[in-house]
Design a protein around this nucleic acid. Structure first.
Lengths: 123, 123
DNA sequence: TTGCGATATGTTTCGACGAACATATTGCTT
DNA sequence: AAGCAATATGTTCGTCGAAACATATCGCAA
C-alpha cells in the first residue's frame, strides 16, 4: 500500500472537573518554555501573544499543587522562565498519554481514515 | 482512597489532513440523529441551531466516501434523517477509539490528575 | 544611574463564529 | 387543494474570546 493518502493525527484534551483542562496548546507551550527558557520567546515561537502565553501559564500554575513554570524578572537578560520538576512531570505525562493513546487506538483510527474520501479538498 | 476528587475525562479529536476532523461534537450529533431520526430534533436536544447541525452533517457527508447521514424532506412527518451504514460504522469506530484510548491511558491520566490541586475553584 | 529585556497586568479594539431570523422546498395526509 | 413538519440555504446580528495596545516593575550590567 502507498503512504496513507491522508495523514491522520490524534489530539487529546484532558478535562479535570469543570474548569481546568490540559490540551495540545498548553503542552506545546510548556515544551517551548522548556526549550527557550522564556515565556515570551515560547509565545513568539508559537505565534502567540505574550499575554496569552502568560495567561495559560498562570492557569496551569493555579491548577496544580505546585507551579509548573517558575519565572523570574529582571536581571542580566531581563528575566526568564523554566519548568519546575512538577512541570517536567506533567509535560512528560501528557506526552506519554498521547503516545499510549495513539498506539492503542492506531488500528481503529487507521480503519476510520480508510473511509475518508481521497481528496477532501480540491487540491 | 475516596472517590477521585476530580473526575477526569478524556476528549479526543481526529484530524484528517488539514481540513476534515471528527470530534466529540460531531460524534454526539450523529448519535442524536440516530436516536431521534431528525437533524432538527438532534440539534434541539443538543442546544444547537438547526443550521449548525445541518452544516456539521454536510461537512461529514462531504468528508467520507459515502454520506454518513441520509435525509429526506417532505412526507407525512415532514421528513427526517438517519444514519447510513457508513454513518453507523463511523460512529461506532469513534466510540471504540474513545474507549480504547481511555482504557489504555487510564493509569497515566490518573497519575496526572493526582498532581492537581484539590479544589481548583472556590467551591 | 541609566538602559535593557523580560515578566506582569490592565484596557481597548477587532474579527470570526454561532444565533437568530427569514424563506423556499418537498411530499405525504386529510 | 390545503396544511403540516422537516429539510435546505441565505442573510443579518451579537457576542465572546483573542489580538493589539499600553504600562508598570524588576534586577543585573555597563
Amino acid at each position: 500500500m502507498p503512504a496513507d493518502p491522508v495523514p491522520t493525527r490524534l489530539r487529546l484534551r484532558l478535562l479535570f472537573g469543570t474548569d481546568a483542562m490540559l490540551g495540545p496548546g498548553k503542552a506545546d507551550l510548556l515544551q517551548q518554555i522548556r526549550e527557550t527558557g522564556s515565556i515570551s520567546a515560547a509565545g513568539r515561537a508559537m505565534g502567540m501573544s505574550y499575554k496569552r502565553a502568560w495567561s495559560l501559564v498562570e492557569e496551569m500554575n493555579a491548577a496544580f499543587r505546585e507551579p509548573l513554570v517558575q519565572s523570574a524578572r529582571g536581571g542580566a537578560s531581563g528575566g526568564g522562565a523554566q519548568l519546575t520538576a512538577m512541570g517536567e512531570a506533567v509535560l512528560a505525562g501528557y506526552r506519554r498519554i498521547e503516545e499510549i493513546a495513539a498506539e492503542a487506538a492506531g488500528a481503529e483510527i487507521a480503519a476510520l481514515a480508510g473511509f475518508l474520501r481521497d481528496m477532501p479538498d480540491g487540491k
